[in-house]
């Protein structure tokens, strides 16, 4: 899958949701990372063809999806974070429709494997946020489309289901573009990363581009240990400049829970 943005800008009145976003990703799994309000959902809406850019272009496999909306809707399926379902269609109705043309292995995975069958008689508006997300994921994955666009796909899903779904994505080799504000999710599933802040790209590239010697993410137990140079702190995670052996010793002494090489959190 080739994803290309060139000076992509989207304004809603005076609000600039995306500003001169440019990147080129030739990868099967692209992670769009950023905090709330960074423009992730707007970018995904343009990608699905549901929004048109104010300036610039976005191309998916060579074409602009908002100009060829019908083609885009055939090629792509989408999941959004907090849907408002306002018709009394039951989950089993969605399943029955998908059974007519969807991927049977995928349907079985969601229906039996993830337990969607357990709330089959519930109307869509009455589902919990996690259940809604599972139904959306079922629709997006099981309808045969070349690209799955996923907006915060795991934000309301049980931890054990997150693992199962992520493994399923990897096993089936789906092409996905997904957003997340959790760095670990991005690094687990992503092959290419686009980091957004306030509607602008602050960084984009592959994981290997992130590597930098001597800088680590450390999982804290309480306050950061003395004598360690802390570059930034995000709650229980600190970005530190140190060496490998020193951090191993800190883990052994119980001063920190663990550590790993610095990843996308660098750009938070």
């Amino acid at each position: 899958m080739m994803l290309q943005a060139v000076n992509l800008t989207k304004r809603f009145g005076r609000v600039v949701a995306l500003r001169n976003v440019s990147f080129e990703a030739d990868a099967g799994r692209v992670a769009i990372i950023g905090q709330n309000g960074s423009g992730k959902s707007t970018l995904l809406s343009i990608m699905f063809g549901a929004l048109r850019p104010t300036e610039g272009v976005l191309r998916v496999d060579g074409y602009e999806p908002y100009k060829l909306r019908e083609r885009a809707s055939k090629d792509m399926s989408i999941v959004f974070e907090r849907p408002t379902f306002d018709i009394s269609v039951r989950v089993r109705d969605v399943y029955e429709v998908l059974s007519g043309y969807g991927d049977s292995d995928c349907l079985s995975f969601f229906w039996e494997g993830l337990g969607v069958r357990d709330f089959r008689n519930t109307a869509l508006p009455d589902l919990s946020s996690g259940e809604k997300q599972l139904v959306q994921l079922m629709q997006a994955f099981c309808r045969e489309s070349r690209l799955k666009i996923l907006d915060e796909p795991f934000s309301h899903v049980d931890v054990r289901h997150v693992g199962l779904i992520g493994d399923y994505i990897l096993r089936r080799g789906f092409s996905v573009v997904f957003t997340t504000h959790v760095p670990e999710e991005a690094e687990w599933l992503g092959e290419y990363f686009v980091m957004l802040r306030d509607g602008e790209v602050v960084w984009h590239g592959g994981l290997s581009d992130l590597e930098r010697e001597g800088v680590y993410e450390v999982y804290l137990r309480g306050e950061p240990p003395e004598g360690v140079e802390v570059l930034a702190k995000f709650g229980y995670v600190a970005i530190v400049r140190s060496d490998y052996d020193e951090l191993v010793e800190l883990v052994r002494r119980g001063r920190v829970r663990g550590f790993r090489r610095l990843g996308v959190r660098r750009y938070f």
Partner: peptide, 16 residues
């Protein structure tokens, strides 16, 4: 339909 429902339908049926 709400906007979300419209997008859900377009995604599920693969056609606006």
């Amino acid at each position: 339909r709400s906007a979300d429902m419209t997008v859900f339908e377009a995604s599920m049926f693969g056609s606006w």
